[in-house]
Amino acid sequence: MRDVLVIGGGIIGLLTARELRLSGAEVTLIEMGQTGRESSWAGGGIISPLYPWRAPEPITALSRWSQTVYPALTTQLLDETGIDPEFTINGMLVLDDEDLDQALDWGARHGQPIEILQEPAPHAIEPELGPRPARALLLPGIAQLRPPRLSKAVRRALEKRIDLREREEVCELLVADGRVCGVRTPKGQVEAKRVVICAGAWTAKLLEQLGTPPDIQPVRGQMLLFHAKPGQINHITLHAGRYAIPRRDGRVLFGSTLEHAGFVKRTTAEDKEALYNDAIELFPVLRRTPIEDHWSGLRPGSPSGIPYIGAYPGIEGLYFNAGHFRNGLVMGPASARLMVDLMLDREPILNPAPYALNASR
């Protein structure tokens, strides 16, 4: 019997498994498909909430902790695996300034530098920027990474240290006498002393049998990838809820939609056109840039975007770490650390109360 069974191989499950293994636990991870191929693969990889001053404080707390550890984490993963997650500090240029005072106050309280740029400064740092308001905000310390590479690196670091079972779907949680004792899959029973549900948008489905599932619903998001050239766009750029993310190789991600379409993960011509029109309005140079790819993913939506991290009430040994909505990458390291702190009765890095199943959201 394993010490811990982690259900779900997205970045939250992978990082949770890593934290558990670092603590000395024997870990089995079960993923219904391939690790890192759902929301973790589809996301943009900005290491910040889009408008951080609008985020609830529990999201800020997880995000700020994670931001401090990401440089060392990605360096360590590169050294261990040879896979570079491409952690890159570009800074984030925000072209919406209607809540300027709120943003500056938030930055002062949380030690996040925010600069006010008056024209021509925004075009000086982003020459290809289209016509926009004469004032912008720059958060110079905001970073990004490439989510598929991060997932691959964590998987590579774990694959010889844990029992990694892919393409195996959990059909049922096994509970006896008020305690979890494992799961059932098409291949049989997998026993464990403790079980952590990190199944993203599928978490509520797994916990339905227990009567009180967390409020997590799939929210589809579509993205475009432009085959741009290095140096054309320099900063993560945000306007009206859309964002452009320039990678090191010049490619530019542009997203994203917010769609309540259940578990239907497909792209649509209508949203592709809407994203394209917004992209070329933001950066007209993209009109002359080929679209390389168009994809969608299912985010684990939760009320206010605050994840559920903690013990499942009434069932000993059962835990959950899910519901990160749009901020799984930025909250991931802190969520994994907090989850393992709670499992091992260590002093938690943050107050866990806001993430409990019964916490108000």
Rank of each mutant, 00 (worst) to 15 (best):
D3P: 05
G8A: 04
G9R: 02
I11T: 03
I12Y: 00
L15E: 03
T16G: 04
L20W: 03
Q34C: 12
T35P: 08
W41T: 08
G45P: 02
I46A: 10
P49T: 10
Y51D: 12
W53Y: 13
P56R: 10
A61V: 10
A72L: 11
L73A: 09
L77G: 09
D79H: 13
T88V: 15
I89W: 08
M92N: 11
M92T: 15
E115M: 08
I116L: 11
E119N: 12
P127R: 00
P131F: 12
P133D: 09
L137A: 10
V154R: 06
K160Y: 09
C171D: 13
E172D: 12
L173Y: 10
L174Q: 11
R179G: 11
T185I: 02
G188I: 06
Q189Y: 11
L206C: 03
T212V: 15
Q217C: 11
V219A: 14
L224I: 09
R242I: 11
R251G: 06
S256I: 02
G262N: 08
T267E: 09
A269W: 14
N277K: 15
I291F: 07
D293R: 12
W295H: 05
R299C: 08
Y308Q: 05
G310C: 02
A311R: 04
Y312F: 09
P313T: 03
G314S: 02
N321K: 01
H324S: 09
H324D: 01
G328H: 00
G328T: 03
G332T: 07
A336Q: 00
L342S: 02
L344C: 11
P348I: 01
A353C: 08
N358R: 14
A359M: 06
